[in-house]
């Protein structure tokens, strides 16, 4: 049992970048097709990443590199905690710590563009964080434990108790995947604003490491989507994978149909959805349990 948990954690460290990078490649291809374009090769994200590591390294402040390394480290740590089946609350906290390092990295250069990007990144964190925390609480209320391994071995899939939490979580994924709103998103689309947000001053390998960290983080987030569907029956793994792919496609669709969402609307919508969907769900769970 212990060894299988170690193996999943090691698999995460080794394969998550490949899987998420490939998904990103398909994302760009599908997005291009939705816009009536041919689009780049599905391996494009890997070409981009490799190039970033080959570019000359110019930096405004040496401390930035250390901060970015810590950011990458804490994201990987969160992933290991999650995929090895430990406490989901710890995963959420560790992800927040990682986000703090990203903020420190971008503010360390004193560039007005990064400062602007940092402000908006903070707003983004503010709109997502309540939902992330609530998801952990939801899992606890439904399954009676924070332990990912035990949640995955429940009699029924958590989604049966947590549909509202699921809706809320999928909603914030659009923001977490940096797809929308366009004035924060540091996505590869042309519809970006204020240069490149938090990553404005990150050059070559620094930007490469941030991209890598985002891939590791996306793997955790998609893993949480899967966790909603998993139970002790092995067939549920297939259901989880299907759910992950459906959610992933939905995010691309949302991105391409709502390209002009701004951060003010994001904040209102994210909190609105969190309060209504997750709040109602929480209320009902309490009544059932009561």
């Amino acid at each position: 049992m212990i060894s299988s948990r170690v193996i999943t954690a090691v698999c995460y460290l080794l394969f998550a970048p490949f899987i998420i990078g490939l998904l990103d490649g398909f994302d760009r291809k599908i997005s291009a097709r939705m816009q009536g374009r041919k689009g780049p090769s599905v391996l494009q994200p890997f070409y981009d990443l490799k190039k970033l590591f080959e570019k000359e390294f110019l930096t405004a402040n040496k401390i930035q590199l250390l901060m970015i390394r810590s950011y990458l480290f804490f994201i990987m740590l969160s992933g290991v905690i999650f995929f090895a089946g430990f406490d989901i609350l710890l995963v959420v906290f560790s992800l927040s710590t990682a986000a703090m390092f990203l903020i420190l990295a971008s503010t360390s250069t004193h560039s007005p563009y990064s400062a602007q990007g940092t402000h908006r990144e903070l707003v983004q964190i503010m709109s997502c964080e309540p939902m992330e925390l609530l998801v952990a609480v939801g899992f606890y209320l439904a399954m009676g434990t924070f332990n990912v391994n035990e949640i995955a071995q429940g009699q029924m899939s958590p989604i049966t108790f947590l549909p509202g939490f699921f809706v809320g979580f999928v909603f914030i994924l659009t923001i977490k995947f940096r797809k929308s709103p366009f004035d924060i998103a540091t996505s590869h689309h042309a519809h970006q604003e204020v240069i490149k947000g938090v990553t404005s001053e990150m050059v070559g390998k620094e930007y490469g490491m941030v991209t890598l960290a985002e891939w590791y983080e996306n793997a955790i987030l998609l893993g949480i989507v899967g966790l909603f569907f998993i139970n002790s029956n092995p067939v549920s793994i297939v259901a989880a994978i299907v759910a992950i792919l459906v959610v992933w496609f939905l995010e691309i669709l949302i991105d391409n149909t709502s390209a002009r969402v701004k951060w003010q609307l994001m904040l209102k919508l994210a909190w609105g959805v969190t309060i209504v969907a997750a709040g109602m769900n929480l209320f009902l769970l309490e009544i059932i349990r009561g």
Partner: peptide, 18 residues
């Protein structure tokens, strides 16, 4: 969409550092 330079991997970035 008519010319689509992204098919060559080109991204139109606003940032000189990238």
């Amino acid at each position: 969409p008519v010319y689509d330079v992204e098919r060559f991997g080109v991204i139109n970035t606003g940032n000189p550092m990238h």
